[in-house]
Design a protein around this nucleic acid. Sequence first.
DNA 1: TATTGTTATACTCTATAACTATA
DNA 2: TATAGTTATAGAGTATAACAATA
Lengths: 150, 150
Amino acid sequence: MNTLSVAQLDETLGFQVRLAQLKMFEHFNQHFSHIGMSVGEYSVLLAVGENPGVRQGDLAKYFLIKRSNMSKVMRAMEQRGLVERRESESDGRALAIYLTTEGQDLVYGLIDELSAYHQEPAPGLNANEQIQLVALLKKISLAAKPGPVD
Amino acid sequence: MNTLSVAQLDETLGFQVRLAQLKMFEHFNQHFSHIGMSVGEYSVLLAVGENPGVRQGDLAKYFLIKRSNMSKVMRAMEQRGLVERRESESDGRALAIYLTTEGQDLVYGLIDELSAYHQEPAPGLNANEQIQLVALLKKISLAAKPGPVD
DNA sequence: TATTGTTATACTCTATAACTATA
DNA sequence: TATAGTTATAGAGTATAACAATA
């Protein structure tokens, strides 16, 4: 048992957000250890599935990671055969991303499981509290304009 | 302006926690860029200040990082002259951590500024919402036993 | 035998800058 | 000139395993 406690931190939003983040991550991995990829990777595939032809740079903006890093992520996905990258027809600089058939199978094969997972409230919360919590967090994320990613 | 939106993710607790975490971090750094250390480093010093003689391993448990990594953190703090590490009197294996005079000056010189910062609600929230949010997050972090760190 | 801390090492995430091709 | 993507590289943060000293 851990006896240490730091009042100055325990009552702090930043610290509690970090703890919640760790908990959420652990919880997700317990349920989805069989999919062979991280939450982040799966989330990117999901975003592509919902937005076929999305630009690679718009994905980077949405997930708040640098273009240079998204570049590596997408190349890895492409090499795993999960996405296809075509030169955009309207803009020769841009890459339009699509799920391959294999990518679609992976993403949509998990949709039901994922939807069930998200309907369960997080550990320690009831359904109402979960809704409240998401609403409060969205106020923060929508508040200030997102810091520039690049 | 970013046109991309992924309903399956935007309404998700895990995704919103990540966004909130990034926002909190950015917000903190804007206010405390002058202290020359990260939130994490400052938090560790604060924990030592509130718990003089705390064991290095208990700090690791509290912050949910590995002993091996806390070892590096504390050695760096020691070399910067901010903490002192004494062999525990009651347990020859353990190290008891104390703030040096310099460490105390740094930590307690920022206490007022920090306390004022934490009384301001996060961007997008009013005071009530901030309190609610912290309470909900604490429910999660207290819910399941913390995943074993080591 | 189990625990505390250390070291070495590796892997992921993230950040910066220089480059190309296109707009 | 500015933007989209790439590459190389460096820095955090985190994970594992083997080890010495102590309990």
